[in-house]
Design a protein around this nucleic acid. Structure first.
Length: 428
DNA sequence: TCTGGGGTCCTAGGACCC
DNA sequence: TCTGGGGTCCTAGGACCC
């Protein structure tokens, strides 16, 4: 196996940085971005972290602290972050022909063909270019495996003197940092495995690397064995330039207010089914069964609890919103029981198949009108792309009722880059 | 008392990721 | 009053088969 080199580049406090790009007043003040329903903090700038705000802190618990600390809090603006992510990746593409977009703010780059001496300059140039062209600050980690590139990225973020870049293909850097990072920071080591490694006497990443492969396997299955190899510089994980076809798809949401009546529950799940249809069609995928679920909240102490789910099957695979909405309503009615304060509902699919190649049902066995449905859905998607999501929906998804249950985004910034009516205005 | 040997498939649950 | 959403992979164990 010839040596490989990977880089992992990620945006610093990515969602917060996106907000800062469009509002210069946010430059040096603490900023956080909240999850759906303004539930909890999911992104924090270094200033916000310094105030003691933790990942996942519920908004109602930190609201006072944010007021007194001058923290600017934003609802999630996924349209903005997704668009900014695409722009950042376009810049990355100028620095490597092989890229894996790993998440909304992280990408792996193949730097195998870049000479050792040129890697750090390339990484610095890339950082500067992304900053200049998109306004997003990044950090870059380089290593002979993806796991080591991730680790290098972690070092680049934590050690200010490195100025956002770290190269673990450099033997001196490798020896230095492997002995100084705790096992819990390794990509793939969560709280449970961190405890197991501690029990095995591992105090640093170097200790994990030097674990006997069989011991690692016994403690953490094949995942652990692979991880030890990756830490030694033996690649077990390849770059995934083409995202593998997804296997499942879900649309689930907490309600902003508790739901206690059937009509509202039907409307909510039908709305989720509508969104599910869009996601499936975007990937050319279909399914012949969906799971509908809803449940109460554990936070509602002293209230009766209930959690139900039911599977609804079709004669053949589909991604037709009409079919999905009917299934959603059917499922809700089937397991509905009044007298509870429901907090969350959703529709989930597994076993997705490429619709084009999927098995048809016999005409006499309830075959769906796929041809007409495809044309109708294409028109629906085109309308909603052009005029905004939810412009055209099936009547069953309910447009008449007030959507009091709908997710709240009360502090959302404008969708600066994806909606004409929300373009930033510059006074000169 | 004793109570095969293998195989596959499916599901639930745990663990991890961002 | 108020606690996110959406994925993947792996294993154990049960059902079932010959």
């Amino acid at each position: 196996m010839t040596g490989r080199t990977y880089a992992l580049s990620d945006g610093n406090s990515f969602y917060c940085s996106c907000e800062r790009v469009f509002d210069a007043r946010l430059a040096r003040v603490p900023v956080i971005v909240l999850s759906n329903n303004d539930g909890c903090a999911v992104a924090r700038t270094s200033e916000a972290k310094a105030l003691g705000i933790k990942m996942g802190d519920p908004w109602f618990k930190i609201r006072d602290l944010c007021r007194s600390g001058g923290v600017r809090a934003f609802s999630s603006n996924y349209a903005l972050y997704g668009d900014m992510s695409a722009r950042v990746n376009e810049v990355y593409a100028r620095f490597s022909p092989r890229i894996e977009v790993y998440s909304i703010d992280e990408s792996f780059l193949d730097l195998t063909d870049v000479r050792q001496a040129d890697r750090m300059p390339l990484a610095r140039d890339m950082r500067a270019t992304v900053q200049a062209w998109t306004g997003i600050p990044t950090c870059v980690g380089i290593g002979p495996t993806k796991t080591l590139a991730k680790l290098a990225n972690h070092v680049a973020k934590k050690v200010p003197e490195l100025e956002g870049v770290c190269d673990l293909t450099d033997p001196v850097q490798y020896a230095h940092w492997m002995a100084r990072i705790e096992p819990g920071e390794i990509w793939g080591i969560g709280p449970a495995n961190a405890r197991k490694l501690e029990a095995l006497g591992c105090e640093s990443v170097a200790d994990v690397r030097d674990l006997d492969a069989r011991v690692a396997r016994k403690a953490m299955t094949v995942v652990g064995e692979r991880l030890v190899q990756e830490l030694r510089g033996v690649p077990c994980l390849d770059l995934e330039e083409v995202a593998p076809t997804r296997k499942g798809c879900a649309v689930t949401r907490c309600f902003s207010d508790r739901v206690e009546d059937l009509a509202t529950m039907e409307q909510a799940v039908a709305t989720h089914a509508t969104r599910l249809g869009e996601k499936l069609r975007a990937g050319g995928l279909g399914t012949d069964h969906v799971t509908v679920f809803f449940h109460t909240s554990e936070h509602d102490r002293n209230r009766p609890q209930r959690s139900v789910s039911t599977v609804v099957s079709f004669p053949e695979a589909s991604n037709d919103t009409i079919v999905l909405v009917k299934a959603a309503v059917f499922g809700v009615r089937k397991v509905w029981k009044p007298g509870y304060r429901y907090s969350k509902a959703g529709i989930v699919t597994t076993d997705l198949v490429p619709l084009e190649a999927s098995q048809r049902a016999f005409p006499s066995m309830g075959q769906l009108d796929r041809e007409n449905a495809t044309a109708l859905m294409a028109a629906l998607d085109a309308c909603n792309r052009r005029y905004g999501r939810g412009t055209v929906v099936p009547a069953t998804a309910g447009v008449v009722q007030k959507r009091e249950w709908a997710t709240k985004f009360e502090m959302r910034s404008p969708r600066y880059t994806t909606r004409f009516e929300e373009l930033p205005v510059v006074a000169a």
